[in-house]
């Protein structure tokens, strides 16, 4: 089973994000780049499907700049077989990213394309489904359980108060939601093997960037709290404020 996994390098969720001097980008100096957690589920699922099939290859594809090779090697250390670095600027514009990823995989043989349901930085929830659209493939998003059937895949999606079970033929594009699996750690042997695995770099062909970030603004500071009084005597005033100002009662 040949599987392509679309992955993204994102800032570590513990990093402090600050706007850069231009006010449109994020300050990147102190950022530790990590594999987007939702893409980790996608990589893990691809590895499990390949292991279950007993044959095939897992190829990871990642768009971005210098931060990308390390992220690809993280996926290779987990067990993916090869990587493609689509070298181009990071962008908020999901369609241009989807196009550059499609350009990297078009014409290649694959049974399945997997990716995280979203990246934790821009949170667009868009690239996976756009890739499906561009390749004219069926798409199931936010998948929490995946099962290979004789003709395709049975997928479970969480919906309000229950589960939605859908079936799709292959090839298809599946986006991974938290709960799909427990991603493995990169083993030490995997880390040592990763540097010997093929990592191809191609130039991004994204076409026109249409959606652009024009400003990143920090949240306005929260208004300071107010001490109304102390003890039981303060309760009536508090209730009055909650009712009339906060309007929560």
């Amino acid at each position: 089973m040949n599987i392509f996994v679309l992955i993204k390098a994102v800032a570590d969720s513990e990093a402090t994000i600050r706007p850069a001097a231009d006010g449109k980008n994020v300050k990147l100096d102190d950022i530790t780049w990590v594999l987007n957690p939702f893409d980790e589920y996608a990589v893990e699922e691809a590895l499990k499907l390949k292991e279950a099939a007993g044959e095939g290859e897992v190829t990871v594809v990642c768009n971005g700049g210098d931060e990308v090779p390390k992220i690809i090697r993280t996926a290779l250390a987990m067990g993916a077989d090869r990587g493609i670095h689509v070298n181009g600027p990071r962008s908020f514009d999901a369609l241009s990213i989807a196009k550059s990823l499609v350009n990297a995989i078009q014409g290649k043989e694959y049974d399945l394309i997997l990716c995280g349901k979203s990246a934790i930085d821009h949170d667009n929830n868009a690239v996976g489904t756009m890739v499906a659209e561009l390749l004219d493939l069926p798409s199931v998003s936010f998948v929490v359980k995946l099962e290979k059937t004789a003709t395709g895949l049975k997928c479970e999606r969480e919906i309000e108060g229950g589960l939605l079970v859908v079936e799709t033929p292959l090839p298809a594009v599946i986006t991974a939601q938290k709960g799909l699996n427990e991603p493995r750690y990169a083993s030490l042997k995997g880390i040592m093997a990763a540097k010997k695995k093929p990592l191809e770099t191609i130039d991004a062909k994204s076409g026109e960037v249409q959606v652009e970030v024009i400003a990143i603004e920090p949240r306005p500071p929260r208004a300071p709290g107010e001490i109304i009084g102390e003890g039981v005597d303060a309760v009536p005033a508090l209730i009055k404020k909650l009712r009339e100002e906060a309007k929560v009662l």
Partner: peptide, 14 residues
Amino acid sequence: TEEERMVRDTVREF
């Protein structure tokens, strides 16, 4: 090296 960092990060996370 990148491998050394990855080894450290894997064990740290473990």
